[in-house]
């Protein structure tokens, strides 16, 4: 199933018959047992985030970590709420999720036409995303971990200087988000991570800190912490509109908020034990 969605140039040549057989095998495997989600190792690096506004900002070291190759799907989140009842939409305290939480599911424990099993789960709060990741012995990635991985094209680790690559991202961000979400399984980037761009917005652990200014001592202007649009203009790389939109969107959220296009994926230490 997945193979058909990968653009031709990214797919190894496989005969049609073998592909069908493989797809059948895969669907049997996933329906029998919830396959362990794939995490891929992201090597350590030194990275200058687009958020760093000071002119003399230096690249920050980002330690090695493992990132989920794909966003969490509706099917996976359904399995989670079935085993963690407190996260069902009819059980969750309002402190942790607003009323839109999983509201596109026909019931607390069913997916329907608006929530297909392989679509990324959306309408989940930051708290719910955190709890899900803990169930995979993982956590949400930090912004810099996400940004650093999302800067890779399918050939280079930092494609941000590549105008063709940037235009490709902008094309997606410019598309109106009225249609149904695609399934997960877009083309992998250099590290084998899929769907970082082009599918959904994603929660990060420190989403609330993205727009915190470096100096909170200026108490005369508490509103400085609350803006988002104006700040974008002072950000380092004005060409990175795609990222700026993402930052502005994440910064506008509260931890219990849910939206129709906001999902998540998890991260963990490279040496973390896989599933208990």
């Amino acid at each position: 199933m997945r193979q058909t969605r990968i653009p031709g140039n990214a797919t190894p040549r496989v005969s049609r018959a073998r592909r069908t057989a493989l797809a059948a095998l895969l669907s049997v495997a996933t329906s029998a047992v919830q396959a362990a989600p794939a995490y891929v190792d992201i090597p350590p690096t030194s990275f200058l985030s687009v958020i760093e506004t000071e002119a003399d900002a230096k690249p920050q070291p980002v330690a090695a970590f493992a990132l989920r190759a794909e966003p969490v799907t509706n099917a996976e989140f359904l399995a989670f709420v079935n085993t963690h009842r407190e996260w069902r939409r009819d059980q969750v305290p309002s402190l942790f999720a607003d009323t839109g939480y999983l509201s596109h599911w026909p019931s607390a424990t069913e997916l329907g036409g608006k929530a297909l099993p392989s679509q990324p789960v959306t309408r989940v709060s930051w708290f719910a995303a955190q709890a899900y990741c803990e169930s995979e012995n993982a956590r949400l990635p930090s912004w810099i971990e996400w940004e650093r991985t999302a800067a890779a094209s399918d050939t280079v680790a930092d494609a941000r200087g590549d105008s063709a690559w940037r235009r490709q991202l902008l094309d997606w961000y410019a598309k109106p988000s009225t249609g149904a979400l695609a399934n997960i399984g877009g083309a992998p980037n250099l590290y084998g991570v899929r769907d970082l761009h082009g599918l959904v917005w994603e929660w990060v652990d420190d989403y609330a800190a993205l727009m915190v200014t470096a100096d909170s001592r200026d108490q005369n202007d508490p509103d400085r912490l609350k803006f988002c649009g104006a700040a974008a203009l002072s950000l380092r790389d004005r060409d990175n509109y795609a990222l700026l939109m993402r930052i502005a969107m994440l910064s506008s959220l509260k931890a219990a908020d849910t939206t129709a296009n906001l999902g998540f994926r998890c991260a963990r230490a490279t040496d973390a034990k896989v599933m208990p």
């Binding site: 402190l95 930051w126 955190q130 652990d205 609330a208 800190a209 727009m211 915190v212 509260k254 931890a255």
Partner: peptide, 17 residues
């Protein structure tokens, strides 16, 4: 991890510099 959760429910924004 709990610092971040408490900050989220109280509406405290912070960033480690």
């Amino acid at each position: 991890a709990h610092v971040r959760r408490l900050a989220a429910v109280l509406g405290v924004q912070y960033k480690q510099l």
